[in-house]
Design a protein around this nucleic acid. Structure first.
Length: 417
DNA sequence: TGACGTCAAGATCCG
DNA sequence: CGGATCTTGACGTCA
């Protein structure tokens, strides 16, 4: 069972995708952006390899305007070496990747111009995966599309459009149930008719259920049958409901208790699990560390990344986690994440936030010049006086961490929440 | 016509 | 001027 995350990572310096607006998308600008984004992708892949994350969704923004008429650059040739090198890292590490055109790629539209753009978009996505030299188990996940007042007719149009796609797209295509229109029962029908695998999404099924009598485990068992040898192991999408937002909205982080119960309830071969969650790689690492014993070092590395976030909420909880990790023969993953989750639920307490900021400042106090010290003290003073939030302070510390190359801090999560 | 979802770019505001 | 914060863009469907 692989566990992964989608598109972007938090606290991975140099991994940010860049783009621009259409009117600025000249050739020179685009070449610069593509070069940057391929480096960013390599940074993400390297990060995943270092951290044992072997499932990852590549952002559709990798090639800005990749499926637009504005794209006149032969990017796959221009960057063929780089693409091949990154693809080799993916293959050699046993990583499985995917891409996921958004809700605006609609293959079953009655409007032929919309369908044409959808086909172009799918061709673009397949070309990215082809250029990386990756096999058909690296999927292109798509939703069925719109209903237009007649779901049966709309499903037929999907199948007809699917039939017209190139082999390059067809061999990668997988169909996912959505949260509004085509539930997993609908998807199973189209999937069987087209002979393509079905990606089961648990939250979409919770919001748009096919049959309330069937559990997640039932549907995962049923959709497993659509995955053939060449498709690789079954893959699902997993997410949790945000407690405050509307039904279907993803949670900020994967709650480890709920996730573990979900996994426990599965039967048969466990699928690969793509997490859809706001905190991305953070949840992926959490779930991986809890799904198997990855060594006390993995937990210590995680604690190092979380610790100032916990400290700025409660010194007591900070000490409690430190205590928990004392025993180097134990592997208290669930306990550690439960404690971290509990403390992050609370907003930062002002006094604790000052304490945490001063701890982080400790990395610079011998290196920073007097003007830097003055700026830090002013920012902290403004925060204490409630003139600003803590973010101006954190951003200042982040800039210092970059300047003085404090990787330990840059790889931590403190600056990003 | 706005909402939907997503992210960064672009625009504007502020000290 | 730099940094923080707000708005726009790019896409198609549906209420």
């Amino acid at each position: 069972m692989k566990i992964g995350y989608a598109c972007l990572a938090i606290a991975v310096p140099g991994s940010e995708m860049k783009s621009c607006i259409l009117k600025n998308a000249g050739e020179e600008r685009l070449i610069g952006l593509i070069g940057h984004n391929l480096n960013a992708l390599e940074t993400l892949i390297d990060y995943n390899v270092r951290n044992g994350i072997r499932l990852f969704r590549i952002s559709s923004d990798l090639i800005p305007f990749g499926s637009s008429e504005a794209m006149t650059i032969p990017w796959s040739e221009l960057f063929s070496e780089k693409l091949a090198a990154v693809g080799k890292k993916i293959r050699d590490s046993g990583m499985r990747v995917s891409m996921h055109p958004g809700q605006y790629t609609v293959l079953n539209s009655p409007d032929s111009a919309v369908v044409k753009r959808a086909v172009t978009d799918l061709e673009y996505h397949a070309k990215v995966l082809d250029s990386l030299g990756l096999g058909p188990e690296n999927k292109l996940v798509l939703h069925t599309g719109g209903v237009y007042g007649d779901k049966k007719q709309a499903a037929r149009r999907f199948l007809s459009a699917y039939g017209g796609l190139s082999a390059a797209v067809k061999r990668r295509l997988a169909l996912e149930n959505d949260d509004k229109l085509f539930h997993i029962g609908d998807v199973m029908e189209s999937s069987a008719a087209a002979g393509i695998p079905a990606v089961y999404d648990n939250l979409h099924n919770a919001v748009n259920p096919a049959d309330r009598a069937r559990s997640d485990s039932d549907w995962i068992g049923i959709s497993r049958e659509t995955w053939k040898e060449a498709d690789g192991p079954q893959k699902i999408h997993y997410s949790q409901q945000h407690p405050c937002k509307k039904p279907g909205a993803h949670s900020d982080s994967v709650g480890i208790g709920e996730f573990s119960e979900f996994i426990r309830n599965l039967s048969g071969t466990p699928p690969d699990v793509m997490l859809e969650v706001k905190d991305k790689n953070l949840s992926a690492l959490k779930c991986l560390n809890c799904a198997s014993n990855r060594g006390i070092n993995a937990l210590e590395a995680e604690w190092a990344r979380y610790k100032y976030l916990v400290l700025e909420r409660s010194a007591q909880k900070y000490l409690a986690v430190r205590q928990l990790l004392r025993d180097k023969t134990a592997y208290p993953a669930h306990e550690m994440y439960r404690m971290i989750e509990a403390s992050l639920k609370a907003p930062a307490a002002p006094e604790a936030a000052v304490n945490a900021a001063q701890h982080v400042w400790g990395y610079f106090k011998d290196k920073a010049g007097p003007s830097e010290k003055k700026r830090f003290e002013n920012a902290l003073g403004d925060f204490v006086a409630q003139k600003t939030g803590i973010f101006p302070v954190k951003n200042l510390l982040l800039a210092l961490a970059r300047k003085y190359r404090e990787d330990y801090l840059l790889n931590g999560y403190y600056f990003y929440f």
